[in-house]
Design a protein around this nucleic acid. Structure first.
Lengths: 200, 200
DNA sequence: GTCTATAAATAGATAGAC
DNA sequence: GTCTATCTATTTATAGAC
């Protein structure tokens, strides 16, 4: 997908297409969404999309690649930030939550398609990103257990899975109009925190 | 889908088809699975499936309807069982977990397609079942809060979501070969229990 | 009961006019 | 840049032979 001499107008159109595709992919699934539907959402006919993107897969890549890149960057910063393991773990969870709420479509697509379209060879970069996120979490948790800041009778991978499952489920019921992120996070640590962090 | 005069042989074939379809639907998605793939998995050609089922949708229904029926029956028994709210909540979670592990394919399909295929009018019965499961949980939780057996600073719906998210995520990493259900449940109550149940 | 052959619909993608 | 028209492939489903 070589895009030469991008004019601002052209970039804007591309962004419109990506936003429309993101909404549809997230709401109905990648496979269930047709290029005709994407085009209709944008207000053009299907053929016109191919002026901006080579393939439907190219649209999906243009949507997901920047998302996971930014996501990884965010997690790496959390893990590198100065602080004890318990704080780092809370920053990681907060980062996950914020990423989810800022890019709900991309996240919904990632979660829904990991065991579907993204199993194909082409999407290895997405599965790699997910694997690295897990590594970052696990390292922080294990450091926390070693330092006595996280209960030692909880397996790192188990805690990671539990936290991720909770976070991942959020966008399906969280309403930014009536809910607030700090209250949500506080609720989580009320529910899971007391069982995770000793000396509270 | 009227099946008259079922011979045992015929029933066995039907079950084979359902099992094959379940595996494929769960692993790749309903839309991504073709009737040819189901037939191949069974060892026949696509046309032969239509001797047993009218449509691909009919296969999906025959797979999901008994599953959610049994699921609801199970939850209703839990809620009706004699015991305090805290025990009931733990029974509900156990029931969810067991249903997941006994019917991993049907569960994976239900979770994956709720925001996809199952949004169609035809699958209202599945969305209704999911809604009733939530009602059963919420009632038990609210009763527990009222009775002082569950922390009152946790919203019932929030606790339900958190528990369900954790349970739903399980089959994606739980390995029945190396993990045991009682240990898993104990792990959950270590992580979330201390934040949920007072006077522990 | 299962197969072969095929109908009918739909999807992704392309070519060329404007 | 967008549209019209169309190609090709794929998919669900059917009809009838065996």
């Amino acid at each position: 997908m070589v895009v030469a001499a991008d004019t601002p107008v052209r970039e804007r159109r591309r962004a419109e297409i990506l936003a429309a595709a993101g909404r549809l992919f997230a709401a109905r699934g990648v496979r269930e969404t047709t290029v005709r539907q994407i085009a209709e959402e944008v207000g053009v006919l299907a053929g016109s999309l191919y002026y901006y993107f080579d393939t439907k897969e190219g649209i999906l890549d243009a949507l997901m690649r920047p998302y996971v890149d930014a996501l990884l960057e965010r997690y790496r910063r959390c893990a590198a930030r100065e602080g004890d393991a318990r704080s780092k773990l809370q920053w990681l969870v907060e980062a996950s939550l914020l990423a989810l709420l800022e890019h709900p479509d991309e996240n919904a697509i990632l979660q829904a398609e990991l065991n579907r379209s993204f199993r194909e060879e082409h999407y290895l970069y997405l599965r790699d990103a997910v694997a690295e996120i897990e590594r970052i979490y696990i390292e922080v948790i294990e450091a926390g257990i070693a330092a006595g800041r996280i209960r030692s009778d909880i397996e790192a991978r188990f805690l990671f899975r539990t936290l991720m499952d909770i976070v991942k489920g959020t966008p399906y019921w969280f309403d930014p109009e009536t809910h607030r992120v700090p209250e949500l996070m506080a609720g989580w640590w009320r529910v899971v925190g007391e069982g995770v962090f000793p000396s509270r």
